[in-house]
Amino acid sequence: MAESDFEGLMLEWVRQHRLDKARNVEIGPETNLIETGVLDSVAFLDLIAYVEQLSDRTIDLMRVDPIHLTSIQGLCLHLQAGSRT
């Protein structure tokens, strides 16, 4: 799957699953999804499970740079870095 497809699918997922209180938050690839209240910790774990299913890879939280951990772009970068190793 192309990187842009990943990003698009993740954006779509986040828009569908965002918390009610964040209905008006503009969501882009760089949005910090937790800090802005778009997703809570449990919903973010759901997102990670979704990404694992999409990419057919397991995401080990300890191996993700914390800078990458809370945005769609960050997770995509993590997946790209992993696919190069």
Binding site: S41, F44, L61, M62, L69, T70
Partner: peptide
């Protein structure tokens, strides 16, 4: 974020 998500 790492500890938060691990904890969750």
């Amino acid at each position: 974020p790492t500890l938060l998500l691990q904890s969750a």
